[in-house]
Design a protein around this nucleic acid. Sequence first.
DNA 1: ACCTAGAATGAATGATCATTCATTCTTACG
DNA 2: CGTAAGAATGAATGATCATTCATTCTAGGT
Lengths: 210, 210
Amino acid sequence: MKAAQPPKKRRKILPKEQRRQQLIEATIACIARYGLASTTMHMVTQEAGLSVGIANLHFETKENLLRETLRYVAEEYHTGQIDIMRGREAENLSDRLTALLNFQLGKGVTQRRKMSVWFAYFGEVGARPIYQKIVSAWDRAAARELESLFASIIQEGGYRDVDPGELAMGYSALIDGLHLALLVTPRELTKQSARKIARDFLQRAFPNHI
Amino acid sequence: MKAAQPPKKRRKILPKEQRRQQLIEATIACIARYGLASTTMHMVTQEAGLSVGIANLHFETKENLLRETLRYVAEEYHTGQIDIMRGREAENLSDRLTALLNFQLGKGVTQRRKMSVWFAYFGEVGARPIYQKIVSAWDRAAARELESLFASIIQEGGYRDVDPGELAMGYSALIDGLHLALLVTPRELTKQSARKIARDFLQRAFPNHI
DNA sequence: ACCTAGAATGAATGATCATTCATTCTTACG
DNA sequence: CGTAAGAATGAATGATCATTCATTCTAGGT
């Protein structure tokens, strides 16, 4: 009796950039499923349907791959926010605020898959300064944009005694905390009520805009 | 010529419970310094000034040691909160609220060492259900206590349109988010301004109590 | 159709690490 | 003191993993 042959896969050659992308996606999938600590190069390359050596070919080391993966995730999340805040669609300020909230607590971002990856890296930030650097850079950019949006709203609404910088910091922290709660204690908090909590926060600060 | 003798350490025998405690403390120190992923049994036992075999003797496996360490940290943080909220000192509600805030964003809790450990475990929660279980249990207890404190304050202050459960969730999320910001982007947020942000949150909800 | 640059493979290598356990040491108790 | 229960040690073991590189294969150019 003959053992079932594994379906022979034809080797495919692709441009460097595409392979890198593919490996980063596979890394995200593995981190979400097995955690950052347990993710091996074998898992990643298998997830991508490629051979072990390929990772080294495109990223030199595992450390590099992890770094680039963080960069990718951070960029995706923060540019998403920034685009909305800049309001290319020329929406009014209230709509932008709502859109931002819906993005931050929406289907795409609050997937377990995404939040797992995000917090996996945060967990290592204390030990790996480079991770901190990557996140800080993007975070600063988003914080500036949010502060500027809040400042416009404060001006438009004539709100008194509100510091846009502090409020932006508070709002960002609230969103991060809600993400954490959705990940760690999902039974205690639905996405819907997370959205309500964030909305209430904004409403107390900008009663005429929400 | 004789090589310098390492200072011979006299072997010391201690009761099981004390050794366990000592190893857990060493684990915390290592996680803070090297990260959860890179922490080895060698590091932990060396940090404790003991031999490698000792960890296996008291905890069977590394996984057990990590689990017990999380339990220890979670218990420390949450019982600290709960004690304050229950107000054994019979303080009035406003004082309890302030004390809670000062504990959560105070010297003890916001040490880099502590926050690193905390988030290291959160990062693995997505992949290890047991971690989620440990944290969830304590979190639920603290959440109930906070909700009950908020409910008392709402009653005392006659505040309208405030749901204690939702507000408690929001406040907890804000505190977690501030911890995260203090860890990841310490240059953007001082402990002092973190406290102000949290106080402002409470003030908007309970203007007569803060 | 042929050729070649370089993309992709995966068995082999060596490093790291958790775990084991035969042995040594400490201390409480008789 | 002497002894035994069991606490502590650390060299040895075997498993896991990142990384290497000789070899195989692909596809675009001629």
